[in-house]
Design a protein around this nucleic acid. Structure first.
Lengths: 412, 412
DNA sequence: CTAATTAGATAACCGGGTTTCATAATTTGT
DNA sequence: ACAAATTATGAAACCCGGTTATCTAATTAG
């Protein structure tokens, strides 16, 4: 109970970026002032909160003491592992993206080599954020493969070198912080759900499960893969295989796909097929219709199994937007003899879904290690668009970036 | 918090069938004695608890006051609606089946007629239990059709006369108690899950979701239908259609099935086909193999979508036991290229799954109306086998059955 | 320099639990 | 028969974490 109040205060303090007084916090959280006072006392010791100079004196009366969120007191890493690349984004405690780095992973690398690349890229990104590696509080990794409950990768066409590897174990040892590893599509699915469920303005009250808490995420690009979010959580299943329809013998999403990889007739890539169709190429348009007709029954059977409100399409093909969504929706809806049919839409995060899911999921899961308090909700809705644009340098200009812990302490 | 303690005390008092002292209750619940005392005070006023004569004096000391659960203070109805029948079981507050009645519903009846039959059969069953209709505290009904979130039946091949009807609304008005209406297969699925998850000895602590909380239930009889339990709850979905694969255009479980009804070549009914196969009929055996091969891909795709630990087969065909489970398991497992595969097994409750689910779900949902306290866990594990055998007359012999409320009060 | 204003600190209270202790109602022992 | 032992009960005191109410401190306005 005390913990929940601490988390609420911390979240408000983080979201209002200016220093806040006890009274302001009490109003914002709905708690009584003495309670907030006690909570702040705890947070000053254990959490990323420090006293700040009072803002200004707007009138008469004793000036209020103010407190501010120390966004710069630590770092969290989001990591997207691809077959040939590693993408890293570093967030400060406020969730702001303050560092990034990417690396090419040479084909034919072995598992340890890939781990080394990940370690190096993360180190580089943390440095770029103006922090030291020791500031890393937690990391989340999206991996293109199947994990077991022990955290080992059991199957992966994209990173076969990591089959049998437990990346969380290896990396948390070298970083000395918790590391979350999850399938990339599942993370992207979680990110989509969080962004749509949370009404962009703060955590919503802990109401019961609504249909906002469910969605199916379908990655359609070179390969097709699925993930399900149910009751607001990634659906894992008994063997952590939920959604892994590629493991179904004879399950080919389309006639011409092999090992989950799509093949196109009228152009080399799906994107090109859509481009040609848009330019009026009838054969390309026909191939798209055919493609939708082929995958629609599979989507429909999954959809009717769990009856989600929403099916989100991600991956390269989702860039085609309505050119894909319209015929696909039509094909899927035609399969359903029901009154209610799922809405099909494209992803909000495009190619950043896994990164976003990795960061957000890490903030959710390791709140205690990150903030010293459990249950601080991540700011999912602030992330879209921040993964690729120019780095926000607001925190840097306000207080010079923290090179390492010793300097940070001096800045108090 | 006080409520949770009251529920715990009430559950212990109900499960130990003898009168208990405060001290015994304190030990059983892990609460402090004064707390139990306060809870008992509340329960004496609002709940089915009354003081009892102390058991005996096992030694020296002041004799302890004892309290006992008043199982006879009310009734709960479980109702299974079939296309041509209505089955009713009446439970006392301890969950014991103390009354039953069944009725044939004439073909071609209209919706109101079927409602009248239900009302009459329930009244008869309550009377048979030695209680008055006014003693009904809550009822649960399993219906062979699709419901919407408003409680209306939107589709049903078995009871077309109830399409558009909201049975909960109609019946709760006439009985003046809450009525729960749910799809029959979903209730059977819930019952199977509860019976397997609860370690037959009391409620388990509210741990996080385990794979015990998920299962797929497949009804295979004249028709095939599915229901999913996820995180210990019936999976409904956005439109309450989860599992309703019959609503999928072109979804036929087998080549020869029509509108969800199975057709057999080598005999008139599935049961007969299994009987002949067991007697050595090769054609019948081949038809079984073929049947499994036809439905296996559909089961596999559902299974891999949610990756359950367990798939439970219910319905008429499940009576074939291992004759069905073995070839079906083989066929389904052959579809899965995964390390972990779901276990397939037959239902524990056979043809009583819906009744059991209706009763248990009603006890769970309407605990407040039934016991005056929310969250009293039903005794799922006591039900198997009690739906058809001779009525337990223990409560009747102990205290003569209660004809109506006035007499009941006198018996205090 | 006083009054007004506003924040911080302290105290009193409340709900729901726990522990502690005095007291009541028995049986046992002499 | 009556004291001693035994056991349950009921009341009181305490703790925790919150609330409201009140007093005190620090500042500005006039």
């Amino acid at each position: 109970m005390r913990r929940a109040n601490a988390a609420a205060c911390l979240a408000v303090l983080r979201d209002q970026e200016r220093p806040l007084t006890i009274a302001e916090l009490a109003v914002a959280t709905g708690l009584a002032r003495p309670t907030v006072e006690a909570v702040i006392g705890d947070l000053l010791e254990t959490g990323p909160v420090r006293p700040a100079r009072p803002q200004r004196s707007p009138g008469a009366g004793r000036p209020a003491r103010a407190y501010t969120f120390t966004a710069d007191a630590g770092r969290v890493a989001g990591i997207d592992i691809g077959s040939g690349s590693v993408r890293v984004r570093i967030a400060d405690l406020a969730g702001e993206i303050v560092g990034r780095a990417e690396a090419i992973v040479p084909a034919g690398i072995d598992g340890s080599g890939r781990l080394r690349v990940v370690r190096g890229t993360v180190r580089q990104a943390i440095r770029a954020s103006g922090a030291a590696p020791a500031d890393l509080r937690a990391a989340g990794i999206g991996v293109p493969g199947i994990l077991d409950h022990g955290g080992r990768i059991t199957q992966s066409l994209a990173v076969p070198d990591w089959i049998g590897v437990d990346p969380a174990d290896r990396l948390s040892a070298s970083w000395d912080c918790p590391v979350l590893v999850e399938n990339d599509i599942k993370l992207a699915a979680l990110a989509e759900q969080r962004l749509r469920a949370e009404p962009a303005g703060g955590a919503r009250p802990g109401s019961g499960a609504t249909s906002d808490d469910d969605l199916i995420f379908l990655q359609i690009g070179h390969r097709i893969s699925a993930a399900l979010i149910m009751n607001g959580a990634i659906l894992q299943g008994r063997h952590r295989l939920a959604g892994e329809l590629g493991s179904l013998r004879g399950m080919r999403w389309t006639e011409s796909s092999k090992r989950g990889r799509l093949h196109w007739r009228t152009a080399r890539t799906g994107q090109q097929v859509f481009a040609r169709a848009r330019e009026g190429d009838r054969r390309a348009a026909a191939e798209i219709t055919e493609f939708c007709a082929e995958i629609a029954p599979k989507i429909a059977i999954i959809a009717l199994t769990v009856d989600p409100a929403l099916i989100v399409i991600g991956g390269g093909l989702s860039r085609a937007g309505d050119d894909l969504i319209a015929p696909l929706t039509e094909a899927v809806h035609r399969m359903l003899m029901t009154d209610g049919k799922p809405v099909i839409t494209t992803s909000l995060l495009k190619s950043n879904g896994t990164l976003c899911g990795a960061l957000g999921s890490t903030f959710e899961t390791h709140s205690t290690q990150i903030f010293g308090v459990p249950g601080v909700p991540p700011r999912w809705h602030r992330w879209p668009g921040t993964f690729d644009g120019p780095l926000s340098d607001a925190p840097v200009s306000e207080a010079p970036a923290v090179p390492d812990r010793s300097t940070k302490r001096m800045s108090r």
